[in-house]
Design a protein around this nucleic acid. Sequence first.
RNA 1: GGCCCCAUGGUCAAGUGGUUAAGACACGGCCCUUUCAAGGCCGUAUCAGGGGUUCGAAUCCCCUUGGGGUCACCA
Length: 487
Amino acid sequence: MGRQVRTRYAPSPTGYVHIGNLRTALYEYLIARSMNGKFILRIEDTDQERLVEGAVDVIYNTLKVCGLKHDEGPDIGGPYAPYVQSQRKDAYLPFAKELVEKGHAYYCFCSKDRLDKMRSEAESRGETYMYDRHCLGLSKEEVEEKLAQNQPWVIRQKMPREGSTTFEDMVYGSITIENNMLEDQILIKSDGLPTYNFANVIDDHLMEITHVVRGSEYLTSTPKYNLLYDAFGWEKPVYVHLPLIVKPDGSKISKRKGDASFEDLVAMGFLVEAIINYIALLGWSPEGTQEVFSLAELEKAFDIRRISKSPSSFDMEKLRWFNAEYIRAMPPEKFHSLAMPYLEKSITDKSIDLAKVSKLLQKRTELLTEIPSKVGFFNSLEDYDLSIYVHKKMKTTLEISLESLKAALPILENLEPWNEESIHGTLLSLAETMGIKNGQMLWPVRTALSGWQVTPGGAIEIADILGKEESLRRIRIGIERLGRALS
RNA sequence: GGCCCCAUGGUCAAGUGGUUAAGACACGGCCCUUUCAAGGCCGUAUCAGGGGUUCGAAUCCCCUUGGGGUCACCA
């Protein structure tokens, strides 16, 4: 020990950030920060067939908006540059050759056709396919000859046939795998680039990564990597395998099945802070009962020992709650600026004071994207069913509603100035002098003003925002319609 | 199928041999109240099953069941 902690986030550029990958990045960041270490970004793009244009920018942007600042990476450089595997491609082959020299790896000239055929044959017999080591027995001369003939080749790792390999994982404990389960995996592909299985070991060593943090799907292949470390005589990193995040039905989250990626969630109206907070708690729990954490607080509280082993399911409802928590907790001005784009689009009437609408909305908004559906009545009064004037708990009927509106109209016509306070005062004292409950006055007024059964804000706030003229107009419409219905 | 891992309410989960088995989301009720929210209070609901070990198991061991992962010139 004593080495400075170094973690790395090593995504392959696919064009979007999977929610599980983001959590891995978050934990890597938190482990580094909580242990006073460095957080490194490395791009794993050794699969040339899966390259996606602009995908690296998506990764930079995600880390940036999430506040997961890396200490070293392709964009900012660092002492172990370059940080893109395709730019390090020449570094891997010498290591593979070293392994061949030492007898831990060998050249293989088997064609893809041969391999595919053997695989499908094995499958048809219901057996698990494993490379048959056809090329293991090649003599040095034979290898030289084939190489000289420019025959396509790969380099495979030679696995021990007997015994077992055990390693310690910080979250899963001791894991043992029988060596005869390990295939002679390919280290260098025929295009000359390393596979992930090889590159991650070389790079993690070269970059002095101390803690390898990744999803639990790598658990069973970790012994292969340790065998590589041993073959080189290198110090092995600490392993931290993370439980999977699954869907409510228990299946794996996948972009191909239309499951939300990080950017999808943002587009749905979720705040980055809420997403981070929520996924931090999927698979990790703090010591106390605190649930709302800023990134800075997570950096202090995070502890590898409190990562859980069992997979957890992604619960959109809980995420919504976190989102609402963050919305409610923010300063009104901040909420207003976030709500503005949605308000401007949905409220076309320029005389409406959008700041006042925001004030009404803040405690009632879980997702920014649901704002438009809540404010349409401000634009114009649509036709509404008169039955909404009748409310059992408010003790209103069509008759009472008509009476209340008729009584309120002249008083409001003469009201100066027109603001929340003055409207509040007159309407409530009117209810009192009429000997009716507040609700019997306010429910009909709110109904007439909005034409909606449910609105953000009550009669007083809505009247204030609509303004005197429009409010009176809507009340007159209510009186007219109720009057006709009752005659 | 072989191998590996996992298993506390519907969900996230605390718990590490002795607890009335926390807390949160969701759900239900009540209060507050000008609708709806927000807020406050209360409530329903969990140790997968079976064997052991022990004076005593959610906690330790074994088996069963269930779920997941992995078996590529993907990462």
